[in-house]
């Protein structure tokens, strides 16, 4: 069924392209050719690789910090009351503003680019994990206390498994968000990566290349979902009835 629906989408695209007969909407075959040429020349893998590295770096930092801060805020009411407003403010600063400010303040450098993405993503992770921490089962925490669990044991065996669905939600929404922000970051201030390339193609009105890169992009995200996230879900939910 998924194969069939994808084929129908391709067919619609092909028919539309033939009907319009305009290089602003190339046929799937043209896009496939461009995809092949870009891959062979090494351009596509290079820029994709650069973007993926930025994704990995900013995602890891945002998730690690977000989980730590989220758990702290969820467990400590006073801390939470103090920082709640900060969170709301950072949640609502437009991504573009953070990106511009990071570049203005720290220059057009790699670390500024990563920082801009992290600052955009971090509040989302914190809010999700904080919500999860507030919902921790009090009975199980008491059980851990009464048997004198160490902090590490408590985190690994009692708290983390309960946070897992929230971490997965933050991961999925995070990947989708970070992808989009990274492209803007690259477009505004880097000289490589997908965002930079798309900007170049835009100036040349090269729609075939834009589509080729987009498809490569979507395929990679699908692979991450299938190869990493789904198995993780399956492994950690094996105890459910």
């Amino acid at each position: 069924m998924p194969v069939l629906s994808l084929l129908v989408l391709l067919a619609v695209w092909q028919a539309l392209a033939i009907y319009l007969n305009n290089n602003l909407l190339p046929t799937p075959a043209t896009v496939a050719t461009v995809f092949w040429l870009e891959s062979v020349s090494g351009q596509l893998p290079y820029h994709m690789g650069v973007t993926l590295l930025r994704l990995l770096a900013s995602f890891s930092i945002a998730m690690f910090l977000g989980c730590a801060i989220g758990i702290a805020l969820g467990r400590n009411k006073k801390l939470d009351a103090f920082f709640d407003n900060w969170l709301v403010i950072f949640l609502n600063v437009p991504a573009l503003v953070t990106i511009i400010l990071c570049y203005v303040w720290f220059g057009l450098v790699e670390s500024a680019a990563i920082l801009a993405v992290v600052v955009n993503k971090l509040p989302n992770v914190i809010v999700t994990i904080r919500e999860g921490t507030r919902r921790l089962d009090q009975d199980l925490l008491e059980m851990g206390c009464s048997f004198h669990f160490s902090a590490r044991k408590m985190l690994v065996h009692v708290i983390w498994p309960q946070l897992h669905p929230f971490v997965m939600a933050a991961t999925r929404s995070g990947l989708a968000l970070i992808w989009k922000i990274i492209l803007v970051v690259e477009l505004l201030g880097r000289s490589n990566g997908m965002g930079y390339q798309l900007h170049l193609f835009f100036q040349l009105f090269d729609v075939a290349s834009i589509l080729a890169y987009t498809i490569a992009f979507v395929a990679i995200i699908q692979l991450i979902e299938l190869m990493i996230l789904k198995p993780l879900d399956k492994k950690s939910l094996r105890w459910r009835r």
Partner: peptide, 24 residues
């Protein structure tokens, strides 16, 4: 050492019976 048996069993659902016991 105090052992506490609660009104509800309070087992960790994501650990097997044996793991639940060995954990404490």
């Amino acid at each position: 050492k105090i052992g506490y048996i609660f009104q509800n069993p309070r087992l960790l659902p994501w650990r097997t019976v044996r793991e639940n016991i060995e954990l404490v």
